[in-house]
Design a protein around this nucleic acid. Structure first.
Length: 225
DNA sequence: GTTGAGCGTT
C-alpha cells in the first residue's frame, strides 16, 4: 500500500477527501502518506499530476476513513512545513463526486463534520497573496494551444500590489544576438538556398483542375471541323 | 533546471 497513483479510487463511499495545498512540487504521495497516516487512517492519497510532464501540480488529496481523524489531521498538519514549504490542509470541496446540495453543503465531504466549531472563527487568515497572476506554465508551456477559454481570473482586477513582486527587472532583451541562423554553418554555404524544388516544370501549376481555364477545354470551343 | 493559485485519477 504504497503506490496510490497506481489504482484508482478504492472506495469513496464513506471516505473524506482532504485537499493539501501549498505543497512543494517534489512532494509525493508517499511523503504525505506517513504524515497524514499518523493522525488517522488514510485510505488513499492521490496527487494529480500533469498529463504532459507528469509532475505534481502542487497539491494533493488525502482520503481519510473517518471525519474526526481527518479533521484532526487538518488541524495538525495545517500549516505544517513539509519539504521546506508550508502546506495547507483543508477539506476538498470540489471533486469527482462533489455534489452540492441546495443547502449549500457538500454532499461528499465536510458535510458530515461541517458542525465542527473549529471552522467557525478559524484563525486561518491566509490571504493567498491575492495575486493570481498566472497559472504558471499552464499558459506558457503548452496549454495555450487549447481552445478552452480560460477565465483569466480577472487579471485586471487589482494588479497593483502584485505587479512588481518578483521577476526582478526585465530590462530588455539584451544579448538577443539574432545572428543569421547559426554562427557555424556546417555545410550550407548559402544560408538561404534550400528551396527551389517544386513548381511544375509545365509553367502553370495544374491548370487541369482549374475550372476557370477556358483555354484548355477540349470541347469547350466547338470549332468547325 | 523553473513556477505557486487552486480542487482529483482507474
Amino acid at each position: 500500500m504504497s503506490h496510490f497513483d497506481r489504482s484508482g479510487p478504492p472506495d469513496i463511499r464513506d471516505t473524506f477527501s482532504l485537499l493539501v495545498l501549498n505543497i512543494t512540487f517534489r512532494t509525493t504521495a508517499d511523503d504525505l502518506f506517513p504524515l497524514f497516516d499518523k493522525y488517522g487512517k488514510v485510505v488513499d492519497v492521490f496527487i494529480p499530476r500533469d498529463r504532459r510532464t507528469g509532475e505534481s501540480r502542487g497539491f494533493a488529496f488525502v482520503r481519510y476513513k473517518y471525519a474526526d481523524e481527518a479533521q484532526k489531521a487538518v488541524d495538525k498538519l495545517e500549516g505544517r512545513v513539509v519539504d521546506g514549504r508550508e502546506i495547507m490542509v483543508q477539506f476538498a470541496k470540489y471533486g469527482p463526486n462533489a455534489e452540492r446540495t441546495q443547502d449549500g453543503r457538500i454532499m461528499e465531504s465536510a458535510s458530515k463534520i461541517s458542525s465542527n466549531k473549529q471552522f467557525g472563527g478559524m484563525d486561518k487568515d491566509y490571504r493567498r497573496r491575492s495575486c493570481s497572476r498566472s497559472r504558471g506554465r499552464y499558459e506558457r508551456d503548452g496549454y495555450r494551444g487549447r481552445d478552452k477559454d480560460y477565465h483569466r481570473r480577472s487579471v485586471s482586477h487589482s494588479p497593483d500590489h502584485c505587479k512588481d513582486r518578483g521577476r526582478g527587472h526585465d530590462k530588455e532583451r539584451h544579448n538577443q544576438s539574432r545572428s543569421y541562423g547559426s554562427p557555424n554553418s556546417p555545410k550550407s554555404s548559402s544560408p538561404c538556398k534550400t528551396h527551389l524544388r517544386d513548381e511544375s516544370p509545365n509553367g502553370q501549376n495544374d491548370n487541369k483542375h482549374s475550372p476557370t481555364s477556358k483555354s484548355v477545354s477540349p470541347h469547350s470551343e466547338p470549332v468547325d471541323s
